Simulated scan of single mutants.
Amino acid sequence: MTSPSSRTARIVTTVKPEKILIAMSGGVDSSVAALLLSEAGCECVGATMRLFHNEDAGVSREKSCCSLEDVEDARSVAYQLGMPFYVFNFTDGFGEQVMDRFVDAYERGATPNPCIDCNRYMKFAKLVERAELLGCDAVATGHYARIEQENGRWLLKKAVDDSKDQSYVLYFLNQRQLAHLRFPLGTLHKTEAREIAEKHGLVNARKRDSQDICFVPDGDYARVIELRTGQKAKPGPFVDREGHVLGEHAGIIHYTIGQRKGLGLGIEHPYYVCEKRPEDNTVVLGPNEALFTTELDAGDFNWIAYETPPAELHVKAKIRYRQQEQPATVTQNPDGTVHVSFDEPQRAIARGQAVVLYDGDTVVGGGTIL
């Protein structure tokens, strides 16, 4: 593995000096991104986004990405690097574009990915606008992904560190955004980023990564939904695939496709959540093999690699963040949605999640599973 010092030197020499707005969460990744761009001679401006009031999600101030500690860590790094620093209040937009979408999806029986919505509707959309107001040329974040230009088109590519690659949650980026985004960590491994932070004495060099949805830090998303709506989830029947009632569920928002634990059924054979039917408040259970299928349709599709995609594509695709990409054939439906047919059956394809297409390291495009 290339040493941190030589890797940093290569980044510094390949980034052109420009004025950049750095999205700083208070974590080590965005702090190292700011450090690398500062060393590259860029005029950097730090910014932390205040996304929600903790009481809106019923969590303590100390447990979210918007905590005072995170803001102060970001401010400390910006001060150390000699950067101006701002805190932007985007709480109104976050409630509408992320939390309400999250609630609506669960109530419709889908399984949302709020981190994608946050990136799409808040971090990149809002920060690119704010960067223009501040006279910045680009926005930088600590995401592990790469942006390259080939034949006049901007492409999103996987990070060098496959274990940290975040291209899956960035599939929605358009050409204008890609042209004005910088991902300095795309060629680094996570261990190298921490070593760089340690070497430069950054206050958050050993800070642990956040693993939870920021507004659901304890994992109890059903409680957040009930708090947001002001209504308790309505119980209904568990049924098997033939329609036989197996018991009572606590409300469809409490379950995800593929779930086995927490069903509360004293049944000898294992059952899994196979379908959620909000129209009659029913949760359908079945054996594990019932979760496998080769087909899905996706809407709200964003093509990155093509202006006009071919009628049929042979790519690799994945239906969840931590999944390895799987071979698939992609065609377009007459209504504009996209049909994905996997070579091998995939387990627990869930409505509301993203399907993202890859050609090697390049993100071809992605959309929301219908």
Rank of each mutant, 00 (worst) to 15 (best):
F88R: 06
N89R: 07
E62L: 13
S64P: 11
V71L: 09
Q97L: 12
A74W: 05
A74R: 04
D92W: 03
A78H: 05
S60N: 15
T91Y: 04
E69F: 07
S64R: 08
V77E: 09
N89A: 02
L68N: 12
M83L: 13
F90Y: 14
R61S: 15
C66P: 03
Y79D: 11
F90S: 01
Y86K: 05
D73Y: 10
F85N: 05
T91V: 07
M83E: 10
R61P: 08
C66S: 14
A78Y: 01
F94Y: 15
L81R: 05
C66Y: 11
S67T: 13
E72A: 12
R61C: 10
F85E: 07
D73Q: 10
Q80C: 00
E62V: 14
E72P: 03
D73C: 02
F88W: 11
L68Y: 04
S64L: 01
C65A: 11
T91E: 14
S60F: 00
E96A: 05
F94A: 03
E69P: 02
E96R: 15
G95P: 04
E69D: 15
V77W: 02
V87A: 06
A78G: 08
S67D: 11
D70L: 11
R61N: 12
P84N: 03
S60L: 14
Y86S: 06
Q80S: 09
R61W: 09
E62R: 15
V71R: 14
V77H: 00
E62G: 05
L68R: 14
E72M: 13
V87K: 05
S67P: 12
L68A: 15
K63E: 12
D70S: 14
F85P: 04
N89P: 07
S60E: 12
Y86L: 06
E69H: 12
G95N: 09
V71A: 12
V71F: 10
E96T: 12
C66W: 06
G82E: 04
A78F: 04
L81E: 07
D73R: 13
P84R: 00
E69A: 15
F88V: 07
V87M: 01
